[in-house]
Design a protein around this nucleic acid. Structure first.
Ligand code: FES
Ligand code: FES
Lengths: 151, 151
DNA sequence: TAATGGCATGAAGTAGAAAACATGTCTTTT
DNA sequence: AAAAGACATGTTTTCTACTTCATGCCATTA
């Protein structure tokens, strides 16, 4: 459904939300290692997120990344928008060039409906909700990673 | 969501269901032209479908492709299975390597639910239903193509 | 102010999907 | 039996997403 870059971006944002704080940055190497993402590739993706004002970056020792605004104000769709663009939520299920009610493919009406549900999930879920879920042990950030995270 | 090959395969199957008959084959060139798919590329995809018993092919003049069984017995998921494989319906929405209830990513429970709805659409919809929809003018086979098709 | 640890940037390399090409083989028609 | 029209097969090329490499730049710290 999304590109690898987008997957990486989403995972990284969640991870940063979890591990950074007002005065605490998370550095690239840690994110890359913990999420098992190629470091230099992730670097480019995070730079995009910085450029689009979802992240702040600091150079130098103690530098790294942190959220540019409260986790409660960042939903997943903002991340998708920056990396893959929003038209992923408007693509035909069987590859028609156009997808709208006026030129429907044979599965258009059913498909566009569930596609909208996905969009709503990404619209509704904020980084804050996700980190809460993770801290409560209801979900994971990455496979190898312990769910027990000290606040 | 699916690969281009898979899109092409789905479109072609629908088109063949619509235009072929017990004694009527549809030839590659027509399909490729009408659906605007690169001819040689489509050829390979149809060969895969032949190999997997969803299509029959005939050589020589009057040759071409037709369904290997009644349109009512072919659902879309069979086509997806041959081209992309069934695990597209089991992939994590944010790119986790594994997706199951025991190691859920932060959106797993919501996401896997709508993903299953998509699977059900592809499971339920048969080529017969789709061609009926098209013949009734409720949907289209391809953008440039008239919906009025003589039975 | 020099050293160090971090991000920023651009170029280069890889792999796999997508597309194009060339040739072979079969079947109908004449 | 020959010609022509179609699918079958294998190779090559192109494109793009993904990954890596090399270097520059900036801020903290000693
Ligand atoms: S046209 Fe196919 S899903 Fe809308
Ligand atoms: S683990 Fe992410 S959707 Fe199931």
């Amino acid at each position: 459904m999304f590109s690898t870059s987008c997957h990486y971006a989403l995972q990284a944002m969640i991870y940063i939300a979890l591990r950074s704080g007002k005065d605490k940055n998370v550095d690239l190497a840690s994110i890359a290692e913990e999420l098992d993402i190629p470091k230099h590739f992730l670097s480019k993706i995070l730079q995009l997120l910085v450029k689009n004002k979802l992240l702040l970056s600091m150079k130098g020792p103690t530098g790294g990344f942190k959220l540019s605004m409260p986790a409660s104000r960042i939903n997943l769709i903002k991340v998708v928008e920056v990396i893959d663009g929003l038209d992923v939520f408007n693509r035909c299920g069987i590859g028609f060039k156009q997808c709208d009610d006026s030129s429907p493919c044979p599965i258009h009406f059913e498909f566009s409906q569930v596609r909208q549900q996905v969009e709503e999930i990404f619209e509704t879920k904020t980084l804050e909700q996700l980190t809460t879920d993770i801290e409560d042990g209801n979900s994971l950030v990455s496979l190898g990673l312990s769910t027990k995270i000290k606040k």
